[in-house]
Design a protein around this nucleic acid. Structure first.
Lengths: 194, 194
DNA sequence: ACAGAACGCTACGAGACCGTATCGTCGATA
DNA sequence: TATCGACGATACGGTCTCGTAGCGTTCTGT
């Protein structure tokens, strides 16, 4: 990890991205204005336009900036890896600022193609993590070869996303474990607890 | 069902509510404007303000107008009643116009208290339907008495909502059945199919 | 120390919306 | 058919937001 001293330009850019993310989390994409971003960041509106062509690309970059890739374990235990996977992706997608931005982003993504691609890419990536875990289990023989992987991922991810976005409750580690255990019960996968 | 001929005032009001719902479904709550509602509905902007105090009130009433209560069966079969319940609530909430409005509504509900109450009331009502079905099953002895009803509802509703809102795919009857069967598998409830 | 690049500040025109006022027109009802 | 309530059309002031221009100021690297 090479840390370079940020240039003046880089500092301004980062302040703008930060303020944008904050603002989107607070008031949503539609109500986020360049003027308010300028106020919050302390960066002049003129300078903002020197960095970003429009509000749309700014929002896209701001979202991109606060997205990170969770680390998923590979222990050989389907249950443990699934819990690691969904705990990680939940934290990455629904904790902190990004979590507060999510509903507004998904709404805006319905109309803005660029934002749509970003959200879809993120969803696909999250699903791929889970898919990989499941396919490893199939390869080990822990799951039947004809299991509907796509359905399985939906059964696991759905309750967590629903809890966060619709019920607006925190996704606890206990909930993740409960969801994983219940869904795996159908496939007679032994659980460590219980 | 008593059908009265609508008065001129009622026709105008209905046209406005209709146009509002259409517009919210298309461009979202934030981008819905009174001027455009006037254009679409053919009702003068002046008249719109004679009926509705503000855009917020109008949106709330428009949403309310296209919300209906699904009928849930009570056959004595947990599986069949759950499928009926989730199939019905899914159709009521996520098919047609209301489905297209949902993301934007949920986003706007984060900031608008009135809209927040409306969305929450709807969510609670949907969950109550499922809760009733489950509690009847517990009373019959089809489910253990200490079952976590709240978790169970989340496990059932989550994948369906996630499929619609996040993946933006249709919620088929097959998916509903698959979700119900998988979740019930943990409680060793016999399924009719399989 | 000295350019040149990058930033801050102020101001501006253009356009979109809001909510209201005014006045002419239509339509249900007696 | 006369009347009054409800609607339609137009226009308006006010506000917000966008994106840009002009110009002075502050960094940064040499």
């Amino acid at each position: 990890m090479v840390e370079t001293t940020p240039t003046r330009s880089e500092r301004a850019r980062q302040a703008v991205l930060d303020a944008t993310a904050d603002l989107v989390a607070e008031v949503g994409v539609e109500r986020t204005t360049i003027d308010e971003i300028a106020n919050r960041s302390g960066v002049a509106k003129t300078t903002i336009y020197r960095h970003f062509a429009s509000k749309e690309v700014l929002v896209v970059e701001a979202v991109h900036a606060c997205t990170y890739i969770p680390v998923v374990t590979d222990t050989g235990s389907l249950r443990d890896d699934l819990i690691s996977c969904f705990s990680g992706t939940t934290k990455a997608s629904y904790d902190g600022r990004l979590g507060d931005m999510m509903l507004s982003l998904m709404d805006a993504a319905q109309r803005d193609p660029e934002l749509g691609r970003l959200v879809r890419a993120q969803t696909d990536q999250r699903r791929r993590f889970a898919t990989n875990v499941i396919e490893r289990a199939v390869a080990r023989g822990d799951l039947p070869a004809d299991v509907d992987v796509d359905l399985l991922v939906t059964l696991l991810a759905g309750p967590l996303v629903y809890t966060k976005l619709v019920r607006r409750q925190r996704v606890t580690d206990e909930l993740v474990a409960a969801v994983v255990d219940t869904v795996l019960a159908r496939y007679a996968v032994p659980t460590t607890t219980d």
